[in-house]
Each structure stands twice: as C-alpha cells, then as structure tokens.
Design a protein around this nucleic acid. Structure first.
Lengths: 204, 204
DNA sequence: CTATTGTAATGTGTTGACAATAGACCATTC
DNA sequence: GAATGGTCTATTGTCAACACATTACAATAG
C-alpha cells in the first residue's frame, strides 16, 4: 500500500451536516435559532435540495426540530429527567462497545487512538474548544464503530449530540485528556472492568 | 368538544413512510430488496423529491441502508449481540416511560389504551398480522409519547423497527393480548413494579 | 481464453421554477 | 378597544429536467 492513512471522502451532504453540527454545538446557533433553507443554500453555494436533506438528517439526530411548513429550528435543551435517561442509554452502548472490543484491538487501532488523544491535547493547548469537542466525540466514535460498525454509530450518535447541546462548557483541560487516556490505558491492558469504569466516569 | 377522538392529520411523507414500513415489516420487501426512487414515485403518484426524503428518514430509523450513488435497500437482520443490546436499550426506555407515567394517567388515557387493546383483539380475530404488529407498536408508542413526547418517541422508534425486522413471526394470539392487558392493568392499579415487569416480559 | 479497458444504460444527485401554506399585518365590525 | 376576517409576503413543499456516478456489458489486447 502506498499510504496507510485512508483519506476519507465525505459526501457533500455530510460536510454540510458536519458544519451545521459545529455551529450548533459551538453555541453559534443557540436553541430556537430558525434555519432558513434559502439562506443556507446561498451560504454553501448549493440549491435547497441538499440543504433540506441535511436538515432532515439533523432533525432525526435530535439537534433540530421541524414542523410542517414552518421550517426547522435548533432544538432546546432536554429536561433533566430525559437527560439522565439519555446518559444511561449512552453508557449502556459504550459499555457494550468496550466489552466487545476488549482484547480485540489491533496495534493499529491503538496507534490511531493515541493519535486522536494527541490531537486532543493539541486542540486544548490552542484553546480551540469547538475542535476539542469534535475530537472528544471522534475518540468515542472510533470505539463505537470498531465494536458495532455504522449501525451502532447511528443509534449512538443522537445521544452524544443531544448531550452536547446541554453541556456546552468544557471540563478542565487536564481532566478531559486524563479521562480519555485512562480509557485507552485500560484497553491496552485488556482490563475490561477498568475500561468500562473509565468510560462511565467520562460520560456525564 | 364535538368529538373526543382527534383525527390525526398525517403529512404526505409520513403516509408514504408508514406504507413502506408496513411493506418491510410484513415481509413483502425482504432484506436486500433494492428501492428504486422513480418506481416508488410512480407508485405513489409523486415526484422523486418526497420519496427521497422518506428514504432518508427510514435510513435513519435503521430500516433501510443506503450508500452514496448506489441507492437504498432493506437492511438485513441484526447480529445477535447487537440485537440483545437493542432489546436492553428499548427496555430501559420503556421502563422509564412506565415509571414516569405511574399515577399520572388520566381516565381518557386509560380509555384510549383500552381502545387500542380492543382493536388489537379485533385484528387478531381477522388474522391480519401486519395490522396486529402496527397496533402492538402503537400501544407502546402511546405510552412513550405520554411520558416523553415526540423527542422520546424519536429515539425509541428505531429500536422497535429494527427488532421487528428480526422477529417477523407473531407470538400466539392470546399471549399478545394478555401481555398488553397485563401492562394496562398494572398501570390502572398504579403498581409501578408490576407494570415494569409486564413491559419487560413483553419486549423480547 | 483471460484480463483490462472503453462504452452504454440505469439510477442517483442536484438544480431552478412553480404551487401551497403559515404567519404577519391591516381593515372592519361588534 | 378587542376580536374577527381578509389580504399579502415570506418560506416551505413539490415538480420536472439536467448533471453526474455507478454498474454491466462488450470490445480489445495480451
């Protein structure tokens, strides 16, 4: 193979979705912000079709809420009870992933996770907290994907997004890196119980 | 009020989605069946636009799987491990709903649930098992919606759909009605523990 | 005969124009 | 003055045509 790092090709819609998610999570588009299809189409230099697709997708993810003929707007934060339920569900999924993965990670998997951790530290040094959030998510997503593929990612993703909507503040820098390093170290040591504990401690 | 039964207005897309879900769950469109946008558009007398929206929606629900430029097809059954995880997650959600609802159901809520049970029995008598499945789902959906609104329904729905894909066979008639009646009776008696137990017994 | 490359056909992605709807604003009435 | 009704505008929903990607098949070279 010429290069071992696969350059990921993202569809147009995925890129737009990614951008909008960033805007929402960063707080640039606070809850109740209305989305105008025509406006967005012009911003991204596309027609309304693909924009509509993205809006539909983000609605299914729970980031947006849309009503018939009334357009879409950024969803509001969850009431505490539902928030707690979602945390519980997300923990169940990540616990499953960790358990499945224990002992089945290749050296390359480990290396890639180390790489993600490194960029996490880097983003923290730069105080780019929107990027920190994205990398944080990608660390977990890597594990979820390895354990259950796209299917599992699809059911997991909405929980993460909804939780990020609620907690915009970032936990202390060192804490964030340390928590993820703890997960990785436990996985490397093939200590399933410790890994599960570390993950649950990180999800809150 | 003129009539106590609200006539539900469904958008065009919701109706199409409903129809396609029926086709998939009933086994008329088994896994790997490819969906042709133009074909579907002609079948429903619409253009491809709304059809594409529906396909996107069902993909997010996990019923379909679609790849870029390659179209969508009916998703295959889950591997057993993921199936078990999904059952666990769905049970968590329904347990939450029951607990929230306990003691908070109005007489009208009870009456509506009784109505759903009646139509369930009716469909069983007619041996219309596709309809049975839909009513079964609507019974649960009613509870979920009352407990957590549209938001909770949106995260719950995919689990139900994926599970229905796996278990197409219907449980014995009397068993199906009895299990749901047990849930309702426990709710009427405001016996939260019994209701939770009954729900968990019903989800498998 | 096999493997590779070019080509046609099928189907998806995108677009811009048109139709329908919701919300705002204003006039009218009681 | 508050409530009802009717327009008007902005925005969403729908459509038909076009641009592009993918697949399958046929032609060619080795």
């Amino acid at each position: 193979m010429a290069g071992n790092r696969a350059t990921k090709i993202l569809s147009v819609k995925d890129q737009i979705a990614e951008q909008l998610r960033s805007d929402i999570i960063s707080g640039e588009m606070p809850p109740q912000t209305k989305l105008n299809e025509k406006e967005l189409a012009e911003r991204f230099g596309l027609s309304r079709g693909p924009i509509r697709d993205v809006i539909l997708q983000l609605t299914k993810e729970g980031l947006l809420i849309s009503r018939n003929n009334c357009g879409a707007s950024v969803n509001s934060v969850l009431e505490p009870k539902l928030q707690r339920l979602m945390i519980k569900l997300r923990r169940s999924i990540e616990e499953y992933a960790i358990t499945e993965l224990n002992g089945n990670l290749t050296d390359q998997n480990i290396a890639e996770l180390e790489g993600i951790l490194a960029s996490l530290e880097d983003a923290l040094d730069r105080e780019d907290y929107t990027e920190v959030t994205k990398i944080d998510i990608s660390f977990h997503q890597y594990l979820i994907y390895q354990a259950g593929g796209e299917e599992l990612v699809n059911i997991w993703y909405p929980y993460v997004m909804r939780m990020r909507l609620n907690y915009k503040r970032i936990t202390s820098s060192s804490e964030c890196v340390n928590e993820h390093r703890a997960i990785l170290e436990a996985l490397k040591a093939q200590d399933s119980a410790a890994a599960v504990k570390a993950v649950k401690h990180n999800i809150k």
